[in-house]
Design a protein around this nucleic acid. Structure first.
Lengths: 133, 133
DNA sequence: TGCACAGTTTACGTTAACGTAAACGTCAAT
DNA sequence: ATTGACGTTTACGTTAACGTAAACTGTGCA
């Protein structure tokens, strides 16, 4: 038997509220088992939740996140299914790469700017030392 | 004299609406000059707009985007100002790196999965060819 | 037995980021 | 002189992603 989780356990672990997790369920992102009324989360549910949250951090909407995550649960039975799945994976990968280009540019930009600031700081400090002589 | 832009020019170039650009102004992200009532955007305004949009693509709120972009317009006059600026730049850079880690993990994850799918597709196709003999 | 505690549903509220519409100004061309 | 094309302000509407509150349901234990 694999480990399971209550909603408040997962909420605490990922620093979100139970309401948020229920909302993700209402949006079709997670589908936990039930023990009567109570939700029971499996390890796989937990992984999906982590994927949702990572998607959010990367700026995806819940709908976009679901599109991506659902690919990981798509049927693999037939050759045709596998082909279309691979096509979709390729498209999503391209989106992620676009984001990486944006991100790398933003970081490089900031690094160049910080470097110029450090140079200027060095100049100012040198001038201050001279003035102190 | 540098080139200037009208609001609809910029809107067309970045594929957004004038309303969006005005909204960014209302939120303090851009501050174009005026010719009477009309807004006149400079090359620097255009760069700021591009930065805002990139920030949005990376999942930042307008407020977060403004925080980052404003660093590029922060005063450099005194040594103290430069020091705090460099500190803030460092913090923002760390945020960006966190995002890059998330992004790299997402891409690596997807690549591994796609690879498994391709293997499985190869197996299925081989089995199909055998059955055709 | 009773009560605290965790969970549930239902439903209205809130915030960010614009969309949409109305009413108006201005300037060039017909 | 009027008609577009573009611009402006003001203001209400909308959507996503939850927050918040109320009312209810088990479940373990003192």
């Amino acid at each position: 038997m694999e480990r399971t989780y209550s909603i408040s356990e997962l909420a605490a672990e990922f620093d979100i509220t139970p309401r948020t997790i229920r909302h993700y369920e209402a949006e079709g992102l997670i589908a936990p088992d039930r023990d009567g009324q109570r939700r029971i989360y499996s390890a796989r549910d937990r992984v999906r939740l982590a994927l949702v949250l990572r998607g959010k951090r990367l700026g995806f909407s819940l709908a976009e996140a679901r599109e991506i995550i659902d690919l990981y649960a798509a049927p693999h039975g037939e050759v045709g299914q596998l082909r279309t799945l691979l096509g979709k994976l390729d498209a999503k990968r391209a989106m992620l790469e676009d984001k990486r280009r944006d991100l790398d540019a933003a970081i490089a930009n900031m690094d160049r700017y910080a470097e110029r600031c450090r140079e200027r700081l060095g100049d100012l400090e040198a001038a201050t030392r001279e003035a102190a002589e």
